[in-house]
Each structure stands twice: as structure tokens, then as C-alpha cells.
Design a protein around this nucleic acid. Structure first.
Lengths: 326, 326
DNA sequence: TTGTAAGCGTTATCAC
DNA sequence: GTGATAACGCTTACAA
């Protein structure tokens, strides 16, 4: 493959001049430029970005580590992040950790070697000890000591869910979520604020006997069978706030299988919104996150990663997406 | 950041020896090795993969260009491809073309510069003229002159759909698909074989008056409004084969909105399968593609990309996934 | 076993 | 305006 040297020789100039032409930097006489451009076209020269990032110590690649791109919300987030990064001149590497801590860590190690310009980290695993603080990391929905992050306004989302269920006339409420809630793990995530917001808002309305179900973190797709048992042992419940739309969908299917009507008997609201589950059957009521705004926040932090040395925090607003399940 | 030279100096050895230790290649005396490993740990040395790919002319990065990772089937495929590539030591770059030809091309150009080891190309755009045949490309569901590819057995899928609808007692059939069918574009994709298989199989059963709806390619998420009009103008239809689950879902929602019962009045079968639309409401009957097998096929071709110079073609079997819509 | 040095393809500094 | 040349950090003959 033709290199800059070949082009220089062919054109009878120095490689520095060719470099100037390619990058449109510095002065080059018009005729020289044209000559060089002609040769470039002739030999089909394409600059080698690897060599370039070698000298520049920057490769314009950002890696996104996330549990599972098939999870609907994560998939959407992935899409918007890619689009946003592309507009900023970055390419994106995708790393599915499959919720496995070992793969999170393996990827972080690999990425160190690749000298990526930034790592977007979305994980519920306890990887804090493996995080080299000098690494250019931006985290989503998760705080690590000294690491900038973007998060949805989960607390406000919890509040919204509470208000919505109350407005719909619910009296006996339930919360269902995995251990991103912090009950089963040391890891503290922003996601737990969904529950906080929900509980606090209800407290304001003097409701405190909320049934709280938390279970160990799985792969975001299934919830343990016993959760359903607990739900059925509380037939008095008429309003459920689920930590995600995936959970809400499962809960609704199970409720209906056991003869409960949604929303007539029980109202269910999820979290994530967007395109989640709008395809067949009822549209889910949900607290929506905005993947586009989140992507913009992430890009903004990445841009500043090498300038400001302060830790940034960006909170993105959420919105109520009313469907047919409440 | 510490380089191999720093390590060599610190350890009082040559850089070649350090390299041998890192890569576990060639002979190194035990004490020397231990000494070097100690220094590596001390200074926190991490090999620079960019420099490495510079010398090796190989960077272990594969790029996947696809229209939209939020499309359910594509998202799933993305996941399995990433997993498979990871197991083969590759990292994956994701490039959403958003179904735009210009972005397809822009990405192909960018990737040339990045000297990625392979490009997985999934597009319905007419990019043939922009494809440098020396590029390491593997295509999915699409034939390009001289380019290896993987495809599902779309023809067999069409046959299955036909047989299934007939078995379920359908008499008057309809096919709905976008112009991956070749009626509105020069681009010829493997996907058109879904229709071929469907029609051919019906012909065997002496059914030839199939209503065929084809419309220009959109973003895979919506179908034009007039398609619904056509459907409603054919109330006699009792079996519909849709080019994808996304289309099937839309068709079903619209049918039900207009008082038709699925599957009682009309049976609908889609294409893609897997996790598509199994969340709320009816489960869709569908011809399932296996993203895992496809991913394996892709990896296999990539492995051989630099060895055999023959064009490979891998056809992956499909399966019938029976749901509640037929 | 181990070290030296060439080479991978750029950019950037400095002379000219 | 332009051209040598030194980095950038690694692998790998080739020598020793």
C-alpha cells in the first residue's frame, strides 16, 4: 500500500510537503499542491491513521463498555452515542461485558493497551479497584471516586412515578427493582435514586407502607421467580413502579397470566421509555430517559477530558411517557 | 506513560529482551524474565497496541457497518458478532449508517485510513462502486462482486412461511416487503429470496394469485401509510407473510385497530425471530434467523480473509418460531 | 540468551 | 515555501 514516502518520491517533493497538503496545514505553492494531489489520486494513497495516532498520541477512538447491547434502552443509547461521537470525529468501539465483572475488567485492560481516547463505562459491577484513575473514563449512571459521569435524573423520575400512580388513584403501592438498589451489594449506583425519589414523594403524601422488593442483579432480562410469588401474595396492591421497562413487561405478563387486569386492577409503570415495548400489545407507561441528551452529555465530558481536570457531573432530565398500563 | 525503553533501562537489559518477555517469544533466562516482570509491575508498563499494530501491520480491529443498531434483529446480531470476535481476539468498531448511503461511504473511507483488519458490511445501499475490492470486506445478506458473504437461508424461510400459512388453513395470501426485493432499486439482496421462496412454494400448491406489496426502503421501522390502505382493500386476505417482524408488528397493530382479529381473521407471520416482540402482547410467529450462527460464519470468513483468496459464501439455516399470530 | 538497529508511516521542528 | 530528520513505541532479523 502506497505510503506518504511513495507519494513524495513520485511527486518529486519532500514528505513534509505531502503532509502539509494532506492536512491542509502550512503554506504550499498552488502548483506543488496540485501536483501532489494528482499523484495521490494516481497511486490511490490513503493516509495511515495508525501511524498518525502514533505521532499524535491520539487515535480518535472511544470505547463503550456496556452490559448488553440487546437490552432495549442500552441499544438505543448505543445508537445515539455513536451518532454523537461520529459528529465529533470519533469512532466507537463496542464492548459487551455481558454483565460479567471479569469481562468488564478484561476490556478495561485491553483498552489500556489500545490507548483509546476515552472509555464510556456502564456497569453495575464492583470494578472500582481496577480503575486506573489516570484513565480517560466517563461513567454513566454510576459514581466512581474521581470519575466524571452522566446520569438521568433518577430521583425526579421516582418522584414522577409516585405522583403519576397517586393521580391515577392508586392506594397500595409496590416497588420492584434489582440490587442496583444497594441492598445486596456494595456498589452504589445512581439508579437507586429511582427508589429514593419514589419513597420520598410518597412519604410527603403520608404513605409509608410501600412494599419493597429487591433482588440480586441478573442480566436485566429476567427477574427471579420468587418475585412473582411475592407479588401474588399481595393482592391488595394496585400500583407498581418497576425499575425498568423490561421488568415491568415481565410483571405485567405474569399478572395477566394470573387473571389480574392491567391497568384496571393494577397499574404498572416502568422506567426507560423510548421505543421500549411499543410494538405489540399495550404501550407501557414509563419514566423516559433521553438517550440523545445522555449521548450529548457524554460527548461533552469527553471533549473536556483532556482539558479541565475537574470531575464533571451532568444530570439529564427525564419525562413521563404515558401509555396504557396505568 | 512508561514505554518499553523505560522498562529496558530500569531492568538493565535490551528492549528486545523486554519484548520477548511481553510476548512470551524466544528464549529468556529465568532470572532475566523475573527481573523484567518486576520492573513492568513497578512502573505500571502497558504495551502500546498502536505501536504494535504499526510494526505488525495488523490491529485486531474489525468494523461493523450496519443501518441501525436499535433495530431488534440487527442489535442482536451486533451482540453475537461482538462476542464471537472477542473470542477470536478482535475488538469491534460499530458504525451506524442510519440507512444513509453517504454515511456508508464516509465510514468505508474512514476505515480505509484506520487499516482495520476487516469490515463487516450490512447495507441495502448501492455502494458497489465505492467498494475497493482489495479491502477486507465480508458482507451480510448481500452479494457484491468478489466479496465473501454470509446469509440466512432466506429462500428456505420463504418456503417455511408458505407451508406454515397453508397448514394453518389460509386460502388467500399476501406478501409485504420493502424494496430489498429489487422492484424499486438496482440493488439485489439475498433478502429478496424470502419472497421467491414464498411464491415458489405456493406455486407448487397451485396458488398464484398472491397479493404482492412492495414499497421503497425506509429505515426499517415504519412502513408507508398507503400499504395499510392496500391491506384494507383486500378484506379477503387471511394470511400475510411480512418481510420482517418489525413490519409484521405494525401490520398486526393496524389490523386490530380496524377490527380484524389476529389470528382468527388473519394470520400473520414475520421474519427475524429471536427476542423480537416477545415482550408484551402476543408472541409473533416468525421465521427465525440465528444471529449466533451468522456471527460464527462471519468470524470464519474473517479468519480466512488473509489466507484463501477465494470468495466464500456461508448460508445459515433458519427455523420456524411459532407464536400466537398464526 | 541477549542486544543493536532497521523499519513501520506519520507529524513537527528547523534549517535553508 | 520546502525538505531533512528526529520522534512516536514496538517487533524482529542479525550479530554477538
Amino acid at each position: 500500500m502506497a505510503s506518504i514516502i511513495d507519494v513524495a518520491k513520485q511527486a518529486g517533493v519532500g514528505i513534509a510537503t505531502v503532509s502539509r497538503v494532506i492536512n491542509n496545514s502550512g503554506y504550499v505553492k498552488k502548483e506543488t499542491r496540485e501536483k501532489i494531489e494528482k499523484v495521490i489520486a494516481e497511486v490511490g494513497y490513503v493516509p495511515n491513521e495508525i501511524a498518525r495516532s502514533m505521532t499524535l498520541q491520539k487515535n480518535n477512538i472511544v470505547a463503550f463498555i456496556l452490559p448488553n447491547s440487546t437490552h432495549l434502552f442500552f441499544g438505543e443509547l448505543l445508537y445515539f452515542v455513536e451518532e454523537e461521537l461520529f459528529n465529533h470525529g470519533y469512532k466507537m468501539m463496542v464492548c459487551n461485558s455481558s454483565t460479567k465483572k471479569e469481562k468488564d475488567i478484561a476490556y478495561i485492560d485491553l483498552l489500556k493497551k489500545n490507548r483509546v481516547d476515552a472509555i464510556i463505562l456502564l456497569t453495575n459491577n464492583d470494578v472500582e479497584p481496577y480503575l486506573d484513575k489516570r484513565l480517560p473514563i466517563v461513567s454513566f449512571d454510576r459514581t466512581f471516586e474521581g470519575v466524571s459521569y452522566v446520569t438521568s435524573d433518577n430521583y425526579a423520575g421516582g418522584v414522577m412515578a409516585a405522583q403519576h400512580l397517586l393521580n391515577k388513584g392508586c392506594k397500595k403501592l409496590m416497588f420492584i427493582g434489582d440490587d442496583a438498589q444497594g441492598l445486596h451489594t456494595r456498589v452504589h449506583t445512581e439508579v437507586s435514586k429511582r427508589r429514593h425519589g419514589f419513597f420520598e414523594e410518597l412519604k410527603k403524601h403520608h404513605i409509608t407502607d410501600i412494599i419493597n422488593i429487591e433482588y440480586p442483579l441478573g442480566n436485566y432480562t429476567y427477574i427471579p421467580e420468587y418475585v412473582h410469588q411475592i407479588i401474588h401474595s399481595h393482592p391488595e396492591v394496585d400500583g407498581i413502579f418497576c425499575i425498568s421497562d423490561a421488568v415491568a413487561a415481565e410483571v405485567i405478563l405474569n399478572l395477566e397470566k394470573h387473571g389480574k387486569k392491567v391497568p384496571e386492577d393494577v397499574k404498572v409503570i416502568g422506567f426507560d421509555g423510548g421505543r421500549s415495548f411499543i410494538n405489540l400489545g399495550k404501550r407501557l407507561t414509563s419514566v423516559g430517559q433521553s438517550p440523545k441528551l445522555i449521548a450529548e452529555g457524554i460527548a461533552q465530558i469527553i471533549k473536556n477530558l483532556y482539558e479541565r481536570k475537574t470531575v464533571m457531573k451532568i444530570v439529564v432530565p427525564v419525562y413521563l411517557q404515558e401509555g396504557e398500563t396505568t
